[in-house]
Amino acid sequence: NQESVVAAVLIPINTALTVGMMTTRVVSPTGAPAEDIPRLISMQVNQVVPMGTTLMPDMVKGYAP
Rank of each mutant, 00 (worst) to 15 (best):
T30K: 15
S4W: 08
S4C: 08
G62Y: 06
A8F: 09
I37W: 04
L40N: 00
E3Q: 13
I11M: 00
P33H: 05
T18F: 08
L55N: 01
V19H: 12
T23G: 07
T15L: 06
V5M: 01
S28I: 12
M59V: 01
D36N: 01
R39C: 11
L17N: 06
N14T: 08
A7V: 08
Y63Q: 05
Q47S: 03
R25E: 08
Q47R: 13
V60H: 00
P38W: 14
M56Y: 06
T23A: 10
L17F: 06
T15N: 00
V5G: 02
L17C: 07
E3M: 13
M22T: 07
V48G: 03
L10T: 14
P38D: 08
P50T: 10
G20D: 12
M51G: 00
P33N: 02
M22V: 08
P38F: 10
M21H: 08
M51Y: 07
V48H: 11
T23P: 07
N46A: 07
M22I: 09
R25T: 07
A8K: 12
N46S: 09
V26L: 14
L55V: 05
G62V: 02
I37T: 04
V49A: 03
V49N: 01
P50Q: 11
T23R: 08
V27N: 04
S42M: 10
P65T: 11
G52H: 07
V27A: 04
Y63G: 05
L40R: 02
D58A: 13
L40W: 05
A8S: 10
Q47A: 07
T15Y: 07
Q47I: 09
A7E: 00
M43Q: 05
I13T: 11
T54Q: 02
N14H: 14
V27P: 04
N14W: 15
V60S: 03
V48R: 13
L40F: 02
V9D: 00
T15K: 03
D36F: 05
P29A: 00
S42N: 14
V19S: 12
E3S: 12
D58C: 15
M56N: 04
T18A: 10
A34Y: 04
N1S: 13
A64H: 14
V49T: 04
V19D: 08
N14Y: 12
A32N: 02
A8V: 08
V6G: 00
P29K: 01
I13R: 13
P29R: 06
N46V: 10
I37H: 01
P65L: 11
G20C: 14
Y63C: 03
P65V: 13
G52A: 01
L17R: 00
P38M: 10
V6S: 02
D36M: 08
M43V: 05
V19Y: 15
A7H: 00
P38T: 09
T53H: 13
D36A: 05
M22C: 08
S42R: 09
A16V: 13
M51R: 14
M22S: 07
T24V: 11
V45D: 02
I11V: 03
T54W: 06
A64R: 15
A8E: 03
M43F: 06
V9A: 02
S4M: 03
V6T: 00
E3K: 14
A34H: 04
M22L: 14
R25L: 09
G52L: 07
P29C: 08
L17Q: 00
I11L: 04
T18V: 09
S42F: 09
T24I: 10
V5H: 04
S42V: 07
L55G: 02
Q2D: 11
L17I: 05
S28N: 13
Q44Y: 14
R39L: 11
T54N: 02
G52N: 08
T23E: 09
V60N: 04
D58V: 07
V26E: 07
N14I: 08
M21C: 08
N1G: 15
V19E: 12
T15E: 04
N14E: 05
Q47N: 00
A32L: 15
A7P: 01
P65D: 10
V19C: 13
R25A: 11
